[in-house]
Design a protein around this nucleic acid. Structure first.
Lengths: 322, 322
DNA sequence: ATCATTTACTTGACTTAGTCAAGTATCTCC
DNA sequence: GGAGATACTTGACTAAGTCAAGTAAATGAT
């Protein structure tokens, strides 16, 4: 929870490295324990891993197996030969490449794999059973985070999605904005309080016909948000736009602002206005690109800093539609 | 972020089990990859693990090693014999038990272990280097969560600690209270908004001489909090007491209330008052035990529910000191 | 079209890491 | 003082995996 200003230095420090090493030792042992429980079967651990892959993916070749499980090619060859002898798999030479064949479990293969699979399933179930549901969720979430961060960094299928406000969001957004602006610009706790105040008022006086919020979610995590509130019949105000560092470059900020403009236009507001500070350069670029014009600037002392506040307006009547 | 009401059913569902199994497969491979990189050394993987243990812990016996690393006793015996032959370890029979001996790395042993250790360190460093610092932190945090949840559930050395408010806390507390009361009692988003409003006001008008907050932290995570605000010269008000489910039973609620009482007494308030709802039984027990008296009850409709609000007072002059 | 190179897989020969069971010395608990 | 447990050792063994050499097919450069 320590707030440290952005250092710009991403070098992994010793504590982090040691923590990862400690986890590796821990999990080596953990996997060892789980594997012990499965050793009574007729198959070795590696054989079971191969069967698992075959049961869950189609059209694998010997090379695929070796690569994905980290096995020696010769060893894979022998394993497959053994499986073939036991009629657990069938191979069909690929038409595209006569050297390779596509390997599939036979009916007998599936039957042999089933108890193995069940044992492993039961074992993990027993492991989870020791924890209450909320902790099970935390465990799974943490594992997925580890996997995503260490994995091939494949971009998620859906880069992000927008959804309306849910319970827990306004606290979360307050928390993140409070920390973010403290880290990036050294703002003090009064900014977080301001966010809390604005969001509390938004919920309390929420008028669904004239006001709206968008939460950007990525892989189940909130990575940005924006709010539109009614100032008058004619004027809507865009508030509290933010995007997490980790989700920048995906066009989320632009998209959020576009949603606001579209909503304001649909509700036939004449003007969309917003207040921001000149140091927030990334946001300013988005506003400018969307057609907002700077109306006035004024220095002020807030959040423990000397800042320059800016009011920007978008004329919804004259501005061209996207 | 889905809010589901407490089901009371902790049975691990299929998705969770599958997610854990997926993680195990992933990490088996991950460890395999890391191990490959270390195989050029003169020591086998298991030998390296044994050396690591010996380098980091004192007074180990052969049995300790076998148990902690999951190795066969005979195999450990042979490994140690080999290390002894190479003068990497020395054994000294325990005075308490002539069958066992305490094993320690010799100077030569440390020297042999150093490059292994460095390689492993460098490898993890390279792994982390691919991630920005913020993601490195998330990785480490997630790993620690996994380790804690799957580990021996050893109670942390320090069960919890109290600290003052920091940036990010009020948002976090709003988030957690919003979700907690939605899950447990079905309260709607207006409760979260109320929390946000109260906390925003607390920060904005904070008077350090007369007001205070306590955040309970456990293993780096916020697990509870309470606030005392000034109502008048004579009267202080305790607000927003909560403790996470995962941290209940540690006496944190009681301790937080005691801190409030101690503070109110030290500031020579005459009365400590609080408002709560009758369904919050756990909190009520704490207040009663601390000497609070129920002053009045009143039904009200808030947070989407019919509730019974209660005002409780503690007379700080007449009540006995703890 | 041809030939060198690479890739996919196979096979024989081998080693290593680990298991199992039987045995000795010592300790613990009645 | 003796039955049983524990800490380690040792001999006999084998499953698991490696390495290198080889074949057949595909690929890429001329």
């Amino acid at each position: 929870m320590t707030v440290h200003h952005q250092s710009g230095n991403d070098a992994p420090n010793k504590e982090r490295i040691d923590a990862v090493r400690a986890f590796n030792r821990f999990y080596t042992r953990q996997i060892g324990l789980l594997d012990e429980g499965l050793l009574k079967s007729a198959f070795s651990l590696t054989e079971a891993r191969v069967l698992y892959e075959l049961a869950h993916r189609d059209g694998l070749t010997a090379t695929d197996l070796g690569r994905d499980l980290g096995l020696d090619a010769g060893y894979v060859s022998r394993l497959l030969k053994k499986f073939e002898r036991l009629h657990l798999i069938s191979r069909s030479t690929l038409v595209s490449d006569a050297r390779q064949s596509s390997i599939a479990l036979t009916q007998a293969g599936r039957k042999a794999f089933a108890p193995l699979n069940q044992d492993s399933h039961d074992q993990i179930r027993a492991l989870l059973d020791r924890l209450p549901a909320s902790e099970q969720d935390r465990l799974v979430k943490s594992m997925q985070t580890v996997q995503r961060l260490l994995g091939e960094n494949a971009e998620p299928r859906i880069p992000y999605l927008l959804r309306p406000l849910q319970i827990g969001d306004i606290g979360w957004i307050t928390h993140r904005q409070g920390l973010l602006y403290a880290q990036d610009y050294g703002w003090d706790e009064t900014y977080e309080a301001l966010v809390a105040e604005i969001l509390a008022a938004f919920v309390k006086s929420y008028d669904p016909k004239w006001e709206r919020s968008w939460i950007a979610e990525r892989e189940g995590e909130v990575v940005g948000s924006v709010f539109v509130v009614r100032k008058s019949d004619q004027v809507a105000k865009l508030r509290l736009l933010y995007v997490e560092h980790s989700a920048r470059g995906l066009g989320i900020g632009k998209r959020l602002v576009e949603e606001c403009i579209g909503f304001a236009r649909a509700r036939e507001y004449k003007t969309l206005t917003l207040w921001t500070n000149d140091i927030l350069a990334a946001a300013r670029h988005i506003y400018q690109a969307a057609g907002f014009k700077l109306i006035e600037e004024e220095p002020h002392h807030s959040f423990g800093k000397d800042l320059v506040g800016q009011n920007w307006n978008l004329d919804l009547l004259s501005s061209a539609r996207a």
